[in-house]
Design a protein around this nucleic acid. Sequence first.
DNA 1: GCAAAATAAAAAACAATGTTCATAATAAGA
DNA 2: TCTTATTATGAACATTGTTTTTTATTTTGC
Lengths: 206, 206
Amino acid sequence: MARRKEHTHDEIRAMATAAVLQHLAVESLDSLSLRKVAQVVGYVPSTLVNLFGSYQGLLLAVAELTLDQLYQCLVSNAQVSQAYDSNPLEAMANAYQQFAFEQPRAFQLIFELKATDEQGLSEHHARLIAQLFALIESCLGELLPELSGEQRLLASRALWGGVHGLVCLALDDKLFAPGISIEEAIRHHIAVQLKGLGYHKEALCC
Amino acid sequence: MARRKEHTHDEIRAMATAAVLQHLAVESLDSLSLRKVAQVVGYVPSTLVNLFGSYQGLLLAVAELTLDQLYQCLVSNAQVSQAYDSNPLEAMANAYQQFAFEQPRAFQLIFELKATDEQGLSEHHARLIAQLFALIESCLGELLPELSGEQRLLASRALWGGVHGLVCLALDDKLFAPGISIEEAIRHHIAVQLKGLGYHKEALCC
DNA sequence: GCAAAATAAAAAACAATGTTCATAATAAGA
DNA sequence: TCTTATTATGAACATTGTTTTTTATTTTGC
């Protein structure tokens, strides 16, 4: 095997995804290009195509990486909240929101990357989202053990669909709720949702 | 004034937006291009740039047009549901979902079009979204007249944020709720949300 | 060890994109 | 009718992702 430079394939992959993330931390996605990434990491476009299949493949790798971080963030926040005996769902929702607002462009990349590619979403990508929902379901099961399986499934989707929708709209300034922060909106959503499900332990915020 | 062809500017604009919509009805957005649109309508790229400012401007015009349709669709569905004395919120949510699934690519265009352009979202675009929320607020006010202004604001955002989030996730097959339709999920969400808000008139679906 | 094959990275070529600019064609005004 | 302003156009431009070809390096076979 030939190697002209001092990096392994995995190293180049890591450098490339890091470069994309670093760009997204500051600028929009469509001001980025495969060629720019290549220049930053000191390689050439075709090399990255060899490693990721395509530019889209590189972006998908970044999306998976970010999704991974997000999932880990939620898990640890849920654990911390358990230690403090507070509502883990609210803790996770807040972590979700915070993550999204701290790196909005990377966050949006996760969900705006269309599955229209002939290869579709990767197995890993899909599994991560599914795991995220499983996490919600599990929390919900602890809070409301009397729910049936299907009820818990429905409730978890409604709960997180709401959090996700609120975050997405707020990220693009499309919530149009003057004087109301995203934190408030999420807290309200969760409180109302839990109350609607029959959970009475926590006081409502309104 | 000069005119080499038989169309006014408004006619060309209408033709161009129609061409985009027709494409989105079948294929993805990134298989479209300004040049293809120009060819379809029988004009030349620079002409469309003159009329829309840029390709992005054309897409934004399409997004506004679609948003307009969506709003009208919701309004009429709310009215019909009032005539039948059923829940207008559920009727609108269903119309929202149906609209999104009937023309997914056009629907996504509304929300995925970043405001990162130097010009940002148009006044009209923003007003339409705000009107949509006002519609929800108004319905909510009729169902739950005892809510305060801020409570109604919060409730409307949580309610519609949830509908929007569920629809967005479902559109991309990222809901991962086997055996559960988007209609069920939305019905559940609205029922739980209304119950959580203290509305008892309607029976819950679960 | 050395030649030959394999392979990785780079370079170059390609087709397609959005946008810009100069030009030619048309309508309006005198 | 001639001038002037305007409008659509066509060519030019820079940039894009991808494909193909070339070059350089490492591994393999003897």
